[in-house]
Amino acid sequence: MCLGIPMRVVEIEGIFAWCEGRNGRSRINTMLLGDVAPGQWLLTFLDTAREAIGAERAALIDSALDALDRIAAGNGDFDDCFADLIDREPQLPDFLRKEQS
């Protein structure tokens, strides 16, 4: 299974960026994105940046990854990891909604 890990750019080195995230510091290939800047958040897969993301989305993804860590450790208490979904009615994406006539 390949999980996307949010990482914050610290330093640029050609087509690579030194980034910091939940698992420490890593050298990330940024060739698929082009120019990135220190302070920017990236969604990374296998040490490659696939998407530039905002800090808020990075925090939500990190929170979901915290839930997976808890589950793997046998802890079933992870509701706080999905605070943005608690007490919210599920919504279909726009493309799945029927057009109202």
Rank of each mutant, 00 (worst) to 15 (best):
E89S: 14
D77K: 07
I61E: 07
R8M: 13
P93K: 10
P6G: 09
G4A: 13
A49E: 00
A73D: 11
P90I: 10
C2I: 14
L43S: 08
V9H: 10
A17E: 00
G74E: 04
G24M: 07
V36N: 00
I28S: 09
F16D: 12
G21Q: 05
G4M: 09
R25E: 07
E51P: 02
D94H: 13
L33I: 13
D80W: 03
W18E: 05
D35N: 10
T48V: 15
A37T: 09
G54N: 11
L65F: 08
R8L: 13
I5P: 02
L60S: 14
T48F: 12
G39D: 01
F82Y: 14
T44H: 06
F45K: 13
A83M: 13
L42I: 00
A52H: 00
A52V: 10
F45D: 15
I71H: 10
I15G: 14
S26H: 09
A49Q: 01
L46Q: 15
L68R: 11
A55V: 09
A17G: 07
R50C: 11
D66T: 04
L46P: 01
V9D: 00
D84A: 07
G76Y: 14
P93Y: 04
A64I: 08
Q91A: 12
D66M: 03
E13Q: 13
D35C: 07
R70V: 03
I28R: 07
C2D: 15
V36Q: 10
R27M: 12
I71L: 08
L65Q: 14
L68S: 09
G4C: 07
W18A: 00
A17T: 02
E13C: 10
P90T: 11
T48R: 15
V9M: 00
G34S: 02
I53T: 14
D35A: 09
D94S: 11
Q100T: 10
G21L: 03
F78Q: 01
W41H: 11
I86K: 15
R22H: 12
A37D: 10
D84Y: 04
R50K: 02
D94G: 06
A49C: 13
F45Q: 14
L43K: 02
I71K: 11
L42M: 07
D35G: 02
D35P: 04
D87A: 15
F95M: 05
A37G: 02
R97G: 05
S63P: 03
E51I: 13
G14M: 13
L92C: 08
R70S: 02
I12C: 11
L85C: 09
R25Q: 04
C19I: 01
L85D: 02
R8D: 08
P38E: 03
P38G: 01
R8H: 06
L33V: 01
D87P: 06
L32C: 06
S26D: 11
R27I: 02
R22D: 00
F78W: 10
D84H: 08
V9G: 00
I15V: 13
D35V: 05
E51A: 10
